[in-house]
Design a protein around this nucleic acid. Structure first.
Length: 253
DNA sequence: AAGAGGTTCAACCGCCGGTAG
DNA sequence: ACTACCGGCGGTTGAACCTCT
């Protein structure tokens, strides 16, 4: 389509924000609220691109930001959310109050990825490394089906499950990995799906797609069968009570 | 002490979807 | 229906900082 740039770049500052610029931006947004980002820089007397202002506000200046180190609970929550949503950082951030998508993305790339690798888990597929490798090899033989592992291999990228380019698998290559990713309201036999503090009850191994493992404590029977089994099981995932979150719809957003 | 190499994270870039005209 | 614009997103970059030798 050939879009014009979001602002006149010739007269905009780039790089790190100064204290004065921060103060101006904060003062303007306090007075006028988050409005039109395109016109904000001029109105606020900032020599910045509107996008840059938005990013600075959202990622750094917003008063409700938590800052500081991630807790162990947040770590596990991010891992669980990533196993379901992939690199949908904004969706993940939406479930972590006070955290930004950028912050989570950085944290994932610098800490959690390594953490999972140390556990022997492929951060892209959330499956044990050797198992993921085997699945990838099998996928190369059987080119008519697509698996996450295969996608990752082809793209040779660390973000094999990236949002824009993600292809919804046409057929499950890894039967124990529920690619439908449907999050459903709790069923009767999970009358108390949430523990205090919003912690989910699905076991960690299941959340990573290792549903046959000995560690599995929730005994989800979706292994090797249709996803309707898992949707019938009905996790109340992260407090999404009464909401059926179908990843395919997220993809179509 | 200093330089090399590694890590972190704020910021930028380019693309996409939604929407107003 | 089409075009242009805007906000938002995810991937990437690079400066600052840290650790090791």
């Amino acid at each position: 389509m050939g879009r014009s740039p979001c602002c006149e770049k010739a007269h905009t500052n780039k790089g790190a924000w100064t204290k004065e610029e921060d103060d101006r931006l904060i003062a303007y947004i306090r007075a006028h609220g988050e409005g039109c980002w395109r016109s904000l820089p001029k109105a606020a007397g900032l020599l910045r691109c509107g996008k840059s202002c938005r990013l600075r506000w959202i990622n750094y200046l917003r008063p409700d930001l938590k800052r500081g180190n991630f807790t162990e609970e947040e770590d596990e929550l991010i891992i669980k959310l990533h196993s379901l949503l992939g690199n949908k950082w904004s969706l993940i951030a939406g479930r972590l109050p006070g955290r930004t998508d950028n912050e989570i993305k950085n944290y994932w790339n610098t800490h959690i990825r390594r953490k999972l690798l140390n556990r022997g888990i492929d951060p892209a597929t959330h499956r044990p490394m050797n198992e993921a490798a085997a699945a990838a090899a099998a996928a190369q033989v059987e080119a008519t089906t697509i698996s996450f592992a295969a996608v990752k291999e082809e793209e040779k990228s660390t973000s094999g499950f990236s949002g824009k380019d993600t292809k919804i698998p046409v057929q499950e290559k890894c039967p124990d990995l529920n690619l439908e990713l449907r999050i459903s309201p709790p069923s009767h036999n999970q009358s108390e799906p949430m523990k205090s503090g919003g912690r989910v009850t699905i076991c960690f191994s299941c959340s990573l797609g290792v549903q046959n493992s000995k560690e599995c404590s929730c005994r989800n029977d979706s292994v090797g069968s249709s996803s309707s089994d898992s949707s019938a099981t009905g996790y109340d995932f992260l407090g999404l009570n009464g909401v059926v979150l179908d990843y395919r719809s997220l993809e179509m957003k």
